[in-house]
Design a protein around this nucleic acid. Sequence first.
DNA 1: GTTAGCACTCTATTGGGTTGAGTGCTAACA
DNA 2: TGTTAGCACTCAACCCAATAGAGTGCTAAC
Lengths: 342, 342
Amino acid sequence: MELDERKKKILKAVIRNYLETGEPVGSRTISKYTDLNLSSATIRNEMADLEEMGYIIQPHTSAGRIPSDQGYRFYVDTMMEEKDREVIELKEMLLERQDKMETLLKQVAKVVAQNTQYAAMISAPSTHRNKVKFLQLSRVNPSQLLAVVVVEGNVIKNNIINVTEEISDETLLKLNILLNTHLNGLSMEEINLGIIAALKQQAGVHGSLIGEVIDAVGDAIKADEDLEIYTSGTNNIFRYPELTDNGKASELVGAFEEKQQLGSLIQETLESETGTGIQVYIGDEAPVKSMKDCSVVTATYELGEGMKGTIGIVGPKRMDYDKVIGTLRTIQSKLDELYKKE
Amino acid sequence: MELDERKKKILKAVIRNYLETGEPVGSRTISKYTDLNLSSATIRNEMADLEEMGYIIQPHTSAGRIPSDQGYRFYVDTMMEEKDREVIELKEMLLERQDKMETLLKQVAKVVAQNTQYAAMISAPSTHRNKVKFLQLSRVNPSQLLAVVVVEGNVIKNNIINVTEEISDETLLKLNILLNTHLNGLSMEEINLGIIAALKQQAGVHGSLIGEVIDAVGDAIKADEDLEIYTSGTNNIFRYPELTDNGKASELVGAFEEKQQLGSLIQETLESETGTGIQVYIGDEAPVKSMKDCSVVTATYELGEGMKGTIGIVGPKRMDYDKVIGTLRTIQSKLDELYKKE
DNA sequence: GTTAGCACTCTATTGGGTTGAGTGCTAACA
DNA sequence: TGTTAGCACTCAACCCAATAGAGTGCTAAC
């Protein structure tokens, strides 16, 4: 069977109505509130077809229809291609350029959650590809060294190194020069075990001590690559009974606290790049099992210098997709603007 | 009326039974499961007295009794003085000494939440009183300086400073000497605006530039004093219907995400120091309004060098106080042990 | 002071009846 | 052939009354 124009109109009407009310939609409602001028009986026939085709579902015999995952998918897809969504004006939107990345991200998460009334998460941009622009090894006291690395985007990493044997000023100076000449300007991902090994070689064989220190510097660079994720508005999920019935809330709250679970979402979003960087997962499509009754919308953002991160919104399937996508678009462009001149 | 020995026994029996079952406790139950050898009728008389005195409550006429907040308070107080609780063995307890404070704290929160099955939070130790042991100002590029401060306990703070005018090597060296001679060995809380002002004076009047830099160093030291709090097991609250009925869950989850709200708990715990550092808040006693239907148990911990932080557990009023307090004691001593040799 | 017994209270549960929204099907209509 | 009116049917939701059961308070006897 084909999805002719009339069926599409009816399907969209059903979905839109359900998004608003959250109640199953009956044939009479559709017949009254569309400009199709068809009786409820005709609508019923069409709806029976739509059900057979898998776009809508009847919770029980004597109820109206609700969209199936396939129905939502149709809705989102046509909605996305219909027109460029206009950018939505955010309420109380006041993002300030922050030196501390953390503060900025928390701010963004909060704004997104408040505007959409869904749960929001945001991942810190990965710095794999950022280049080292400053590197310094200093002595804190005879048995401790401090390694500080600054990479593009003003991300600072540091590591305290405990040494068993005192290192002379001269050696320290040499080490600093060695490290700087070889690592400065390289991106984080370029600094791999091979490079570290080559460095050790070059430092000469005088003592494993130097080797340890170089390893520790390497660690400092690699460290903190565990995913930093911030969330906001987790409690918004309580606005939607379909997400909180039967202990579902517990799983969702757990997923938002154990940020590892959110990691897979971020991963997937970054990999399957779309034109706009916005992606919609409906039900089972999301790679997190506790979100099988949710819809998830993710967007990649960019903070100048090619630092890419991910914003995600989690809500019920009957989500206001239009608003959510608009909000994410706005955030994308505001962030871009904010960091453009760097 | 007096709380004689028999009344105390009955009260404790009521509370203990309610802690286990979560159901109102009737007179017959008490008569059967205590060694008092009294009939239910006698128990009833005593329970009527206990109710009049405010220790227990009848949810409705034909139900058993449940403890009032005053009842819980009595129970906790006598329990605390009865004997030194023995230290409880933790399941899967594997705390490793971590160089990264953050990792350690997350670990502790997780262990506590898993062992008790309640929601747990932990605050990073405040570093106000810690002394600066290393301070360094470096040039990252002509327009950016990097200030790094290490304080006792290996807490590292840093700040990028944007300068409008290039600073010469000589000036930088002088600044470093100035900062180190004056600030090294001072505690964070001693470095106040007065000291900063004196420093500026001493640096001479040559340009407001230096003043700016000194201010920025001061900022780096003061920064991050916003409360760092980690949580775990928030979803444990769903195990207790009395915490999740009627939208209470939403408030609690909100409180755990907006960590500011938890700040007041931490504040209060640190201020009202008890002998063991453990404190129990029942119902309204907690300074967080969303926890009025909960009990909160907090403990201060110490990581060598006088760095004090707070662990908190939030659960229903019918909490297994014994186990919770035992767990917190164990954690306290393990942490102490772990960092003793520093 | 303690206990047995009894009347009483109140919640929770059960089951029957009703309502109302919505459907599917059929027959008539344009 | 597509559309519509009409009707019988289904089913969740709600209300109501009846019942069961747990627990109490009170009184009288031990």
